[in-house]
Amino acid sequence: MTDAPMQAQAQQHETLDALAWRHLGATAGHVEATLAANPGLARIAADLPAGHPVQLVRAPAPTRKLIQLWD
């Protein structure tokens, strides 16, 4: 389950990865989820204009399969 999207504004010449890192503290999965939620964002994700609004989406944490040594 994902958290509710949050509105963020880019700084001058910021990348989407840097924006996600600044607000969410990580990029893995969050960048992909954010791109899916913001149509057309991929065209400018490498150089966002100052103040550009972005709906950041926190991706769900990956699930790890539990390994039981004696099963």
Rank of each mutant, 00 (worst) to 15 (best):
M1L: 09
T2S: 13
T2A: 13
T2V: 11
D3H: 13
D3V: 07
D3R: 14
D3C: 10
M6W: 01
M6P: 03
M6A: 09
Q7R: 15
Q7A: 13
A8L: 06
Q9C: 05
Q9L: 12
A10I: 12
Q11H: 14
Q11L: 15
Q11M: 13
Q11E: 15
Q12L: 12
H13P: 01
H13Y: 06
H13R: 14
H13C: 04
H13Q: 12
H13G: 04
H13N: 14
H13V: 04
H13I: 01
E14T: 08
T15L: 07
T15C: 09
L16W: 01
D17R: 10
D17Y: 09
D17K: 06
A18K: 11
A18P: 01
A18H: 06
L19C: 09
A20Q: 09
A20W: 00
A20E: 08
W21E: 13
W21Y: 13
R22A: 14
R22W: 06
H23S: 06
L24G: 02
L24R: 05
G25H: 09
G25C: 10
G25R: 07
A26W: 02
A26V: 04
A26Y: 04
A26R: 15
T27K: 05
T27W: 00
T27D: 01
T27M: 07
T27Q: 06
A28L: 14
G29R: 09
H30T: 05
H30A: 13
H30Y: 03
V31Y: 01
V31Q: 03
E32A: 15
E32D: 12
E32V: 11
A33F: 07
A33G: 12
A33D: 12
T34C: 01
L35Y: 03
L35I: 14
L35N: 02
L35H: 07
A36C: 04
A36N: 05
A36G: 01
A37D: 03
A37V: 02
N38W: 08
N38H: 11
N38R: 13
P39H: 05
P39D: 04
G40N: 07
G40H: 05
L41F: 10
A42D: 15
A42I: 15
R43I: 01
I44Y: 02
I44G: 01
I44M: 12
A45G: 03
A45V: 04
A45R: 11
A45S: 15
A45Q: 11
A46W: 07
A46N: 12
A46H: 14
D47M: 09
D47C: 15
D47E: 11
L48V: 08
P49G: 08
P49Y: 02
P49E: 06
A50E: 15
A50D: 15
G51H: 09
G51A: 11
G51M: 07
G51C: 11
G51W: 06
H52D: 00
H52G: 00
H52E: 05
P53F: 05
P53L: 10
P53S: 08
Q55K: 11
L56G: 05
R58M: 10
A59C: 10
A59H: 07
A59S: 15
A61S: 13
A61H: 08
A61P: 01
P62F: 06
R64F: 12
R64G: 12
K65G: 00
L66K: 12
I67H: 03
I67M: 02
Q68G: 01
Q68E: 02
L69G: 00
L69R: 04
L69C: 00
W70R: 10
W70T: 03
D71C: 00
D71V: 00
